[in-house]
């Protein structure tokens, strides 16, 4: 079991990762913190935002800071599951060759798998990815490949809808966080992004980030040690369970949304896996804050990003998900009492 000194040492490294990524990415402090939290909570991250806000850049910066092997796949409508597993080509001697695909190529050294524009990939590809995310294994060539250290970062373009395949509920549930990356609003940051040439060359920008800060082979152990070391009181457990109940029947806690029949809003509340993700992430937030116990503030810091995409609405309200989901989670956090 990790000692307090080890946890403190890892905490400093975790904070250094944020600092290093922050050298390449400006105006996205919250997003950087949440991706870091997911990293130590060993959860996958789906990043959503407008075109060109820096989704790919931030994920590349993290990949560099984490260390280990990095692989990147572009989601396209003609991408097939096999394309992730193997790669066929004719070599220089004219012989057909089969090589491991991007998912298998690095073996257990794969620490970051970056799936760009995941909603352009077909459901078959998404299904393959589901297993890789949930079990960190894939069967191919009559054997099972394991990626015990792999974290999947995916991004999704929320502007275009043509030739895209919306992720299934089960697929979304596999992601610990579904983050919305906003366009920076602070004038100084906007000015720097537009006029500072340093931010125009992405490859050079990524080079600013120190490499392999974390002992990536130990991240699973570190994550487990964090989970064991952060205490959850009875009052906090009651609070989390109340939040879970509220995600299934928000009207019982006095939650109201304008123009919504609350009794007909929810099709399914947050899954057990979703609540696990919530507490895992909250424990990491507490750890990063230097505490040995969770508080409701830790829950609040991650709840919108762990719960929002895990509440499923009835069809009549599903089309308004973009507006309703954040409002619902905000209202739940404002109405579920604690301590009680």
């Amino acid at each position: 079991m990790a000692s307090d000194e080890q946890l403190q040492d890892w905490r400093e490294r975790a904070l250094r990762v944020e600092k290093e990524v922050g050298r390449a990415i400006i105006g996205q402090r919250d997003t950087i913190r949440l991706i870091n939290v997911a990293l130590f909570a060993r959860g996958h991250v789906l990043l959503e935002g407008d075109v060109g806000v820096g989704k790919t850049t931030i994920l590349r910066a993290f990949s560099r800071a984490i260390g280990g092997d990095f692989e990147r796949v572009e989601g396209t409508v003609d991408l097939m599951p096999g394309d992730l597993i193997y790669h066929t080509y004719v070599d220089a001697e004219g012989k057909p060759r089969i090589e491991p695909g991007p998912l298998l190529r690095h073996g257990e050294r794969l620490s970051t798998f970056f799936f760009n524009e995941i909603n352009r990939a077909r459901p078959q590809v998404q299904s393959l990815l589901l297993r890789a995310m949930a079990e960190r294994t894939v069967s191919a060539f009559n054997r099972e490949y394991r990626f015990p250290h792999m974290i999947v970062f995916a991004d999704r373009n929320r502007v275009e809808k043509e030739e895209t395949f919306e992720l299934a509920s089960a697929a979304r549930d596999r992601f610990m966080f579904e983050l919305r990356m906003p366009t920076p609003t602070e004038p100084e940051i906007r000015r720097a992004l537009v006029f500072d040439p340093d931010f125009h060359d992405v490859d050079q920008l990524i080079q600013r980030v120190a490499e392999a800060i974390l002992p990536w082979q130990q991240l699973n152990e570190i994550g487990a040690a964090i989970q064991r070391s952060i205490h959850a009181s009875d009052a906090l457990e009651r609070y989390v369970l109340d939040l879970w109940d509220a995600s299934q029947a928000p009207e019982r806690f006095g939650v109201r949304l304008e123009g919504v029949d609350m009794s007909k809003l929810i099709l399914a509340g947050v899954s057990p896996r979703g609540m696990m993700s919530l507490t895992r992430a909250a424990r990491v937030v507490a750890w990063l804050a230097g505490r040995s116990h969770m508080t409701p503030a830790d829950i609040h810091a991650v709840a919108p990003w762990t719960l929002g995409h895990r509440v499923f609405f009835t069809p009549v309200y599903e089309l308004r998900r973009t507006q309703l989901a954040p409002a619902l989670i905000e209202q739940i956090l404002e109405h579920v009492p604690t301590p009680r």
Binding site: E334, T338, P339
Partner: peptide, 23 residues
């Protein structure tokens, strides 16, 4: 008693119109 502290918490919540935490 914890119930006494919780009663005061509920009073703060009602006054603020939302559940309050230190943050």
């Amino acid at each position: 008693a914890p119930e006494a502290w919780q009663a005061v918490h509920r009073a703060f919540d009602q006054t603020a119109g939302r559940v309050l935490q230190i943050d």
